[in-house]
Nucleic acid binder design. Structure first.
Lengths: 363, 363
DNA sequence: CTGAAAGCGCTTACAG
DNA sequence: CTGAAAGCGCTTACAG
């Protein structure tokens, strides 16, 4: 198979040739040319220097209106699409921001990334997405691949990263924003909330409601476990210990909630409430309890986390903790852009967006 | 503010300098150098030609084991991170695949993109994410930004694109895979299922169950409307017409389902079933009906679409249509990779992944 | 198995 | 306001 160039003679019925006036291709004899219209092609056709075309494309206002209009017309007629690979190499600005997320299958992460993407795209930046699957080895690999792309900024989910990841990031010397978890020694910037405080707040809320016999269903990820730890610590102050403690696999689903609620029940301890590390888990638990004829919250209360859309709409509205994933994405995006455009900030920037305990029917 | 170079003297407490043995920086006097380790730095330190380092990095096996090991060691010690902006420019391969999605907030799209990303990353490709927000002007802008990045392939959600989008894509002459909707004239490749057939299948399923008085709650997006049209056509064959027909804004939620179910009821027509364009909508409808003391399906049946995780786990399991978003992402990824690595295929490739009507309690 | 030279398509840094 | 020259950091296409 010929790897030469995408010749016009290629026998490919699905494709049409872009409009490329042949007179501008005539001079091209290089064996390495792409065949697509370059800035030089535009310059030649417009009778100006390449740099002038560059200025028009990049909206540098040091070009006369007349020249600008002319160059624009030529660009249009030739169908010129700038090559940002070349532009980025020359300017050291890729106009790329990379986001490393465990999974976008989690609604909260998805909302956050969505907001980040919208914020960036409004500023002319593109989003490079790296999926780490809750795996730190994977995270490191993804990071390496991403660093090769020379992004102008990096968005990180979570704040617990391997030493190696931290090192690479520091060495790369680009703006980094960690998210979701506020802590004291961020790599660079940080937008999130305190999982520790959330855990304490959940404990205090449930205690204030009179619950004393707790079962827990929490994800195995660092953030969930951190919330659990501080909740458990708060309970301990009252001399209370978990009567049941289940840890789920990553990617919490209703099904997992049902399953773990069922086995929590089968363990025989008399619980008055089940605390879950996410609303889907809580929703699953509620369904399981109700299907066994138990009333929520009269017989057993259920607490969630995240304030997913269904938490409020549900037949049994779920008591939960509201986190603003969208704001996290927006803030992070703005931070990154600010940092990219205005250079280094004197201090690491930390924003604690807080959270809200939302009392509803289930607990 | 100095824009010169990221000098070692920068007063930035959060950052540490990467390890860069100073002897390799000595020769660098260019005012445009980045300051980061380049392939040439590695070559110099290793006492080989740049091309040899390139071969080692790209695992070309025409380098002796001894040289390979040595170069690897030097790369490691200098902390060299290849610059794929430069690599891509020289080789015309960006190792980037772009995905244009209306939103990743939709679980089905998220799953699809997740699978695509996993498939690509295993092959050493990165994912560029473009969010079009169900807006064709936005889609065009996003596409243009993306094309500047010279991706090796493009993943598109949906098959209804503006003429302009289609033109740009054809002109760019890169592998494209459209998804979610099977139709006859794809731009290039296509992986999806027939929304038309889904609509017909839903109609036939409901008719077979004896339902005759239908209300509809469907999203305004092309795909939902396509399903509705064919469903309505099938109903019409039996002389049946929709007794209520609601269209929701994009991004269907439980809350919208509740709301529209409520107003469908208030319109006074006696319905025996409500058909929804998504499971969240159906779930919302079920909650609303039950909260009004109506039994599902005894009083009113509800049909969903998508087979979301909660559809089966729900207290009232939802009758729905199963679509495999994950497979769509995987297939599309494999298609793209195959096409990128093996060149043009003779025919536009179309894969119909089909769907499955899943009868459960709600209808 | 290894390398010297040229080039990818842009922008920087001057200069006028 | 406009431009000529050099360079960004890689890989291609030869050559040996």
């Amino acid at each position: 198979m010929s790897t030469k160039r995408k010749a016009k003679s290629t026998n490919d019925s699905v494709r049409v040739e872009p409009q490329r006036p042949s007179q501008f291709r005539a001079g091209l004899t290089s064996s390495r040319a792409t065949g697509s219209v370059t800035l030089s092609d535009v310059a030649r056709a417009a009778g100006v220097a390449p740099i002038t075309v560059s200025r028009v494309v990049n909206k540098s206002n040091s070009v006369s209106p007349k020249t600008t209009a002319h160059v624009r017309a030529v660009i249009e007629s030739l169908g010129y699409v700038p090559n940002l690979l070349a532009g980025g190499l020359a300017s050291k600005k890729s106009r790329l921001v990379a986001a490393i997320v465990p999974t976008i299958t989690n609604v909260m992460f998805a909302e956050s990334i969505q907001a980040l993407g919208d914020t960036l795209s409004r500023a002319g930046y593109e989003l490079l997405l790296g999926l780490s699957s809750y795996d730190s080895t994977r995270e490191q690999q993804v990071l390496e691949a991403i660093l090769s792309r020379r992004p102008d900024g990096i968005f990180l989910t979570g704040a617990t990263h391997s030493v190696y990841t931290r090192q690479s990031l520091l060495a790369a010397n680009i703006p980094v924003v960690e998210t979701w978890d506020v802590h004291k020694s961020p790599i660079d910037m940080l937008v999130g909330f305190s999982h520790k405080k959330v855990g304490t707040a959940i404990a205090e809320y449930l205690l204030s409601r009179g619950y004393r016999k707790f079962g827990a269903i929490f994800g195995s990820d660092t953030r969930s476990q951190e919330r659990k730890s501080s909740m458990v610590r708060r309970f301990a102050k009252e001399g209370i210990h978990l009567l049941g403690d289940h840890t789920t696999r990553p990617g919490s689903t209703l099904a997992m909630g049902r399953e773990h609620a069922a086995s929590l029940l089968q363990e025989g301890r008399k619980l008055d409430s089940i605390v879950c590390s996410s609303d889907p888990l809580a929703q699953g638990a509620i369904i399981e309890l109700q299907s066994r004829g138990l009333r929520v919250p009269a017989d057993i209360a259920v607490m969630g986390f995240g304030d997913y859309e269904f938490a409020s709409t549900n037949a049994t509205p779920i008591s939960t903790v509201r986190i603003d994933g969208k704001s996290i994405g927006e803030f992070a995006g703005r931070f990154l852009l600010q940092r990219i455009n205005e250079g280094a900030m004197p201090e690491p920037h930390i924003v604690d967006l807080g959270f809200l305990v939302v009392p509803r029917l289930s607990a």
